[in-house]
Nucleic acid binder design. Structure first.
Lengths: 347, 347
DNA sequence: ATTATTTACGCAAACGATGTCGGGAATTAT
DNA sequence: ATAATTCCCGACATCGTTTGCGTAAATAAT
């Protein structure tokens, strides 16, 4: 089954003209007589002619499309970011090709390879949590593929980056828990080597040391798959709950980790916040409806996507190599709700 | 800034061969001597050569990509469906271009036009709630563009369709409320002309009449934007709550309507289920964590996406026009939780 | 009337890859 | 030794579109 669209050739044939004349008539060239123009335009409209973008791409060496590579679409942060990306792309005449890595390094590499081979003009990238080898993306970038990183950035490549102030976000979230009277605060985050993990852990550590709170490396739990798998969160939580210094509060550093901790507490009947307070990074729009209503760090996902897409399109359309790179740092929003309410003074 | 990939021409030039020879060597043609083959393959590997898919598309008149048009990516049902689509596409060598209508008819038409103009080999469509004029999609389909509808189908085109048994899903959900003792059951759904709305309303009506429950058209509320806008849900709820026959239970027929009713009840302090029980269509994976835990009708979104993509690719790859169409009807799952718990006998 | 200019269009090349055809050289058959 | 066959490879057209260049006819300038 095949869809055959009408081409300039068809128009030329029926109208007894050459393809060049038709092409020029459609582009309203001064070289074409008004009568011919009218004939061509009328017929093209009638037949609902649309230029074949593939032929254009081949000729122009650009596809007017951008690739987006994220770990998972079914994640509120990323789907909101994609919304932002789409809004810009649509407006600037680009279309968006989306690929998912599912936090899997091999899938990431093959997705990049695909996007690369000239089918997209640029790439918006948020690396998978497994990725520690950046040679694929580095290779593409050094060959001239415009790349903008967002959220999870690659330090080793020098390009535009759009991130959230992860340090401050985690610092503020931790501080909020401290202020509300919690003493043993744990931090559960993504894979250790991810930029967002490192920055968030730094923020957490800084808040803890600033306030001279007790903590050690055991207070920090890592989820190599970003919490995508319930069991990895369960394991980390089991460790923490059973440890000598059982935490009375936890800060969850990703969307999936946040919801999986809630699930864990529900299953294990750990009351929040009385037995364990929590605040989590999340972009779900119904965290207020959870039981208990959830304190969250909310990232400006839509704006991040928008900004990243704008930067990418600027790079793509720039005539000369871009050398001056921007790192846009947007603030996250701290929303205080019941899950991190003031600690009840027991004893 | 431009990314210039290596081409067959470049290889031909450096190796002192013709492009045809290089092409044949890479495709392992018997016409090429083993030595030449080895030289070409080795050099291509070294330079990380990849055929330009755009050139291929132009020649083969196919792009190996499929378009997906949904109302909104940031919707758990659709993002899960897209996951299913992607899994099939990836495996069959297609890539996925995603477009959103945002429940806006004009955006839907322009997205279809874009996808159409030969840049995709087929389209997976779930129409927007505003759409009542199907001429664009009908036109494309009649010109030979393979289309598979899923979830929200277009009756007027005869093609493969993948849906949920909306009638039974709504019937069972309503019955569940009846069994749990609720007397005045309202139904809030999407735009009236959407297939899913009609089928779900039919299921609701059947359950009500079967059990001789009182209801009239005023018990049914419609949200033209599919609940995407809080205010439209608010208005419908206000009407219902203030009506003479105030409902004691409600069935919400879409993801967004479900969460917005919960939000409404929280804001207006309507206790669930004591003052208003509810069950809603939802594919969120944390409805159990809501307060109260939410009874839901869960659709097999991933499977639907998978099946729809499989059918579409079959259509695309079929040599002769497909005439025998399948309508796949999958069952939805009813999950009973606190929000629709047995009615407390007041009075 | 001759030349210069404008008008309005067609021809051909290009983008990258593939497939058809054809042909020179080497090998085998007669 | 000549004819037939095989082996390798190159030239060319093609997909749809744009664009530089060429040019016939019409008009304007001399």
């Amino acid at each position: 089954m095949k869809f055959e669209a009408i081409t300039i050739k068809d128009i030329a044939k029926t109208l007894g003209l050459s393809t060049s004349t038709v092409s020029r008539a459609l582009r309203d060239s001064y070289e074409i007589s008004p009568e011919t123009k009218a004939r061509v335009i009328e017929y093209a409209r009638e037949m609902n002619y649309r230029p074949n973008p593939i032929a254009l791409s081949l000729k122009e060496k650009r596809s007017s499309s951008i690739g987006v590579l994220v770990s998972e679409i079914a994640n509120s942060f990323f789907s909101q970011a994609i919304n932002g990306i789409e809004s810009v792309a649509q407006q600037k005449g680009y279309n968006v090709v989306i690929a998912q890595s599912k936090e899997d390094f091999n899938r990431e590499v093959s997705a990049l390879q695909y996007l690369a081979s000239r089918s997209v003009d640029g790439i918006l990238l948020s690396v998978s949590s497994e990725t520690s080898d950046f040679s694929t993306i580095n290779g593409l970038y050094s060959k001239g593929m415009p790349v903008v990183c967002f959220d999870r950035v690659v330090e080793s490549i020098d390009t535009h980056k759009v991130i959230v102030d992860n340090f401050m976000a985690a610092y503020n979230a931790t501080n909020h828990l401290i202020k509300n009277g919690y003493k043993q605060i744990a931090c559960i985050t993504n894979a250790a080597l991810l930029s967002i993990s490192r920055e968030r852990v730094e923020g957490y550590k800084k808040a803890m040391t600033d306030k001279k709170m007790p903590f050690d490396e055991k207070s920090i739990g890592y989820c190599p798959h970003g919490g995508l798998i319930y069991e990895e969160v369960e394991e980390v939580m089991n460790q923490l709950i059973k440890s000598k210094n059982r935490p009375d509060a936890v800060i969850a550093c990703s969307d999936k980790i946040t919801t999986n901790i809630m699930r864990y507490c529900k299953l294990k009947k750990v009351p929040i916040p009385d037995s364990l307070a929590m605040i989590g990074f999340s972009n779900l729009d119904l965290t207020e409806l959870l039981s208990p209503s959830l304190s969250v760090v909310r990232q400006p996902a839509y704006e991040m996507g928008k900004k990243a897409a704008e930067l990418l399109i600027t790079m793509i359309e720039s005539k000369r190599p871009v050398l001056d790179f921007e790192t846009v740092i947007l603030p996250a929003e701290l929303i205080q709700r019941a899950s991190s309410a003031k600690r009840k003074m027991v004893k």
